[in-house]
Simulated assay, not measured.
Amino acid sequence: MAATLPVPIEFRLPEGWLPARPEGFDAEGVAFAAVHPQPDAGFAANITIDGGFPKDGVTLEEIADASVERLRAFAGSVVVEHRREVGSQESPALTQRLAFSAGADGGDVRDLVQSQVYLVFVDTGDPHKRAMVRLALTATAAQHDSVLEDFQEFVRSVRPDSGAGG
């Protein structure tokens, strides 16, 4: 069952990407997933969205560290290749790039790269209330750079849902 996000958002999938069917995607806590139409060596690059409400005083770096530890639980060695705080005081964000190897269904081990973006949405009525949304791109090491621009396009399209929809 898909998780729900702590704050409604709207976004636009890059051209060609397809929403993943829940039964075809196994990721606990994921609110939304999409897959690239051209798998690399049997692995479909994917974009996932999840989130939650960070406890008071918890930094984005601590949240990102916890994400690395969760990934280590099934991937073993995880290397943080890059991490940077971006955004502003009012709208903090963090990006990180992780490299790891994981076993596939057939027992083959694949070298994967995951780019993560953590966005914080602060309640305008109560600045002490924060919601965090994590956007992640996971792809084979060979395909990652070729789908990264799509992911960056996707990240730029994410914004709080105004509820004005049509």
Results as ranks from 00 to 15, higher is better:
E28S: 13
T140M: 07
L18W: 01
V30L: 06
A141R: 11
K129R: 15
L112W: 00
P8D: 15
E90R: 14
S157D: 02
P54S: 09
P160F: 08
E10G: 09
R97K: 14
F32W: 03
K129P: 00
P14F: 07
H144A: 15
R21F: 09
V158D: 06
S101E: 14
D65Q: 10
H144R: 01
A66D: 12
S77H: 13
V109R: 10
K129N: 09
D123Y: 02
A34P: 01
P14E: 07
S67G: 15
R156T: 15
Q96N: 10
G106F: 12
E153Y: 09
F53Q: 13
F43D: 04
S162G: 15
T124V: 12
V80T: 14
V7K: 07
A44M: 06
L137D: 03
L5A: 02
P39E: 09
A45V: 07
G107L: 00
N46R: 01
P22S: 10
F121G: 12
A93N: 06
R110A: 12
D40M: 06
A45T: 03
F43P: 00
P127H: 06
V80Y: 01
D108T: 07
R110W: 03
R156D: 15
A2M: 10
E15K: 13
P14N: 03
L137H: 05
A27L: 15
V122M: 08
H82L: 13
A131I: 04
D65N: 11
